[in-house]
Each structure stands twice: as structure tokens, then as C-alpha cells.
Design a protein around this nucleic acid. Structure first.
Lengths: 230, 230
DNA sequence: GTTTATAAAACTGTCGACAGTCGGCAGTCG
DNA sequence: CGACTGCCGACTGTCGACAGTTTTATAAAC
């Protein structure tokens, strides 16, 4: 592994090594600098990043809990390889969480929440016009995070955050999503309308449609179930 | 392949220190040997358990991701202290997950699933007659885990498992639940009936009632929001 | 007696090192 | 020629130690 993508040694500022390593690994995995199923060498990473193995190990455990890595005892950490079934499961869980959230939100839709969401949709639409796919995805996720937040259950948001890491992975793996970026962006307006209507049923219908579209964009060309070789 | 006579899985279980420490801590927290909000000293734990600090730290990170601990930078790890709001949030999330699961399950209720669930309810009822509260809780959770499992989304089950740790904590904190153990046990029958009917709506109603009862038992005498003193 | 300044203690974050283990490779035996 | 065995390198799991920071204890000043 020549690791040509590796960051300069001084990239890591002495501040919170574990988090920094975790962030670095997250980016590297999502950008597919490490292939799914690939084994991560602790020593190699330590050398590349210029830190010791302790923070690398702790960061790896963090990413394991986020579903980006899996650990095999005495073997080390491997990049999570998602198959089609797990793909569907992730989106199904997402649907579960967001349905619940939006139904709650519909019944407690404050002016503050409305303004925040509308503003975020504007940001999202703006991002959709540009070419920065990463930013578009992040703004999209941010909209949904806001929705979860204003739904009033922080634990729900936390669960969603635990999922966004995998979601990013899902999206990144198929990344050829740019069929109709503006379509996805504008489809958020329907969510706003449903919320404004105050009808939980309408909200549920809207979110079902919304996530269904997103899933359809992503689940396309996903490989067969089974572990790609290490 | 001369391994057919060998005991299933590995006869020699060389369990990681990390997992062992994590299990120990989990038990200690749930049994309230560590009070909520209390600070955990890494060195002290290392000495008590006879291991070095590295596995203790990694175990603590694991428990942090499970919601039993929280880490404050440069301060260390603290036992999670749940207030009434977080309490409600946990149960609300649980409701969200189980609604989704049971509605799915209703549409794919196999004979295998039905048999497994009915058997588990029997085990649960049996456990309810005894005095072992811990076992009752575990059997209860196991029933719900089975339900999630047969719903066909492993990711959903994983999310639930991430919640069971907190659930156990919730239950342990209030632990005076033994008002009517058999009531709770038998109330599972209603879930079985709803599933057998094949109606998602009936299932939803049943699970709403079921979890509502459970929550009512637990949410009682929960303190005010805010951090209890160390 | 209370408050501030200072010193000591305790603790976390991080590191380098050692030992046991795993996978692969070569050599050996059938 | 194929299967088994023992060795070798690489790596993980774990440890003890050091440095910087936070907290506590102590002392001085008001």
C-alpha cells in the first residue's frame, strides 16, 4: 500500500488526537482511499499520521461503533463492506426514524423550526446549483438533522447521527447520484409544505416519498451480498 | 474437515481484556456500584482490575458509544446521569423502532417467527413467577430482540441493542418495578395476538399500549433535569 | 474569616516497547 | 506431486512511563 493519498505529517495538530484520527479515517474511507473490506494496519497508520498506536486504536473503536469499521479479534480493523441488503436496511431504519420525527414535528411546528428549515432548504438549493457534491450531501443531511432536532427528541437525533456515517458511506459507494441534484433539492419543499399543513399523515406520506426517491438514486448497481476479499 | 466432533465455536475463549472490562463496568454501573454522574478514575480501575490503562480506556470508549458513560476532554469518563427528559426520549425512540418492526413483522409473520416468539413468552412468564428481577428484564428484552430480528432488518436490531444498554440503565435506576411483574409478562400475549391477526394497525396499537405500560412503570419518581452531584 | 495566590497531587493523553498470536512460506514426508 | 509441519515476519494486545493539565491542598494577604 503506497498510500499516496496520505496527509502530510504535520496535518495532525496536537489537540485531540483521537478525534482527529477519527475524522481523517472517516474522510479517507468515504473518499474510498481505503477500499471496502481492506485491512487497516495500526502501525502503518501510526507512521503515516505521525502519532502512536494508542489514539489510532481508540479512533478505530469509535469508527467501529459508527459502523464504518469492523474489528476481528487478533486480526485488526477492516473497512466495512456494505452489501445490497445492508443498504436497504440502512434506508429502512432511516425511514423509521424520520417518519417518527416528522410526525412529532408536525404537531409542534414552531415558527423558529419553520424558519430554520426553510433557510436550510435555501442553502441546499444553492448548493445544488454548484458542483460540490460533498457539500450538497452535507447540506441535505443537515436539513434532516434539523428536522430531527426540532422534533424534540435528542436521542432520536443521536440515533440518526449514528446512521449518517453509514449513509455517507452508502452514498459515497455509489456516488453517481448526480442525475438530478436539483430535483432532490426541490423535493424538500414538499416536506415543508406537509409540515406547514400540520397533518401527520401528510408528513408521513411526504417523507416516505422523499426517502424513497433518495434510496432509488442510491440503490443502483450495488454488488451482491457477501464479503469482498480483504 | 475432521472437526465435526469438536464443540461449537472456540473451546478456548481468549476474550479481550477490553470486552471483559466493558462487561465489568456495565454490570457495575447497572447495579449502581458507581453512582450516576460519578467520575471514573482510569488508574483506580486499572489497579482494581489488575490491568493496564489501555484496555480500560478502550472499554470506556465502547461504553461511551453505548450511552453508559460520557467523556469530558481532559476530565475523564463519567457515569451517565439520565434526567426525566432523556428518559422519555429513550422510550420514545424505543417506541419508534418497535412500531416499525412490528408493522413489518405483521406482513411477514412466518411460522418460525411465531413459534420463537411464543416460546419466548413462555420463558418470560416462567421468569415472572420467580424472584430474579434481572432475569425477568433480560427475558423481556430478549422477546423484543426476537421481534426486531424477525422483522428482517438487522440494522434495526442493532439500533435497538444500542438502546437496550440505556434501557437497562433506565430500569435499574428506578428498579422499583415489581408492582405487577406478571401483568407485564402476560401483556406480551396481546402482541402475539396482534401479530397473528396480520394487521399492522392492530400491531401498532398493541405495541403502543405495551410500551406505554412499561414506560409508566419506569417513569415514576425520576428526578429533575440536571446533573446530580458526584 | 474569607479570598487569593501558590504548590503539590492526581489524572489524562500519548508514547515506545515487549510478548503472544496469526498468516504465509519453505522444507519435508508420504 | 500433494499434504503436512515448523519457522519467520508482521501485527495486535497489553504494559509501564512521561509530559502536560486539572484539581485539590496549603499558605499568605486582606
Amino acid at each position: 500500500m503506497a498510500l499516496s493519498h496520505v496527509a502530510p505529517k504535520a496535518f495532525i495538530q496536537h489537540q485531540n488526537l483521537v478525534e482527529q484520527v477519527a475524522d481523517y479515517l472517516t474522510q479517507a474511507i468515504i473518499q474510498q482511499h481505503f477500499l471496502p473490506g481492506e485491512r487497516l494496519s495500526e502501525v502503518q497508520l501510526s507512521k503515516d499520521l505521525g502519532v502512536s498506536r494508542a489514539p489510532v486504536r481508540e479512533a478505530a473503536r469509535l469508527l467501529e461503533s459508527r459502523g464504518l469499521l469492523i474489528s476481528k479479534p487478533r486480526r485488526g480493523f477492516f473497512v466495512r463492506a456494505l452489501n445490497a441488503v445492508e443498504f436497504e436496511d440502512v434506508f429502512d431504519l432511516r425511514l423509521c426514524l424520520e417518519r417518527h420525527a416528522i410526525e412529532h414535528l408536525a404537531e409542534r411546528y414552531s415558527v423558529e423550526a419553520q424558519r430554520a428549515l426553510e433557510q436550510q432548504v435555501e442553502v441546499l438549493c444553492e448548493a445544488a446549483l454548484g458542483n460540490d457534491e460533498t457539500r450538497r450531501i452535507e447540506e441535505d443531511l443537515q436539513f434532516h438533522r434539523l428536522m430531527l432536532h426540532y422534533a424534540g427528541n435528542e436521542r432520536l437525533l443521536k440515533a440518526f447521527d449514528g446512521l449518517t456515517h453509514e449513509l455517507r458511506l452508502c452514498i459515497a459507494l455509489i456516488t453517481k447520484t448526480h442525475d438530478a441534484p436539483d430535483t432532490i433539492a426541490t423535493s424538500h419543499f414538499k416536506l415543508l409544505e406537509a409540515l406547514a399543513s400540520g397533518s401527520p399523515a401528510a408528513c408521513r406520506e411526504a417523507i416516505d416519498y422523499h426517502i424513497g426517491v433518495a434510496r432509488k438514486f442510491v440503490v443502483r448497481g450495488v454488488g451482491e451480498p457477501g464479503e469482498p476479499g480483504s
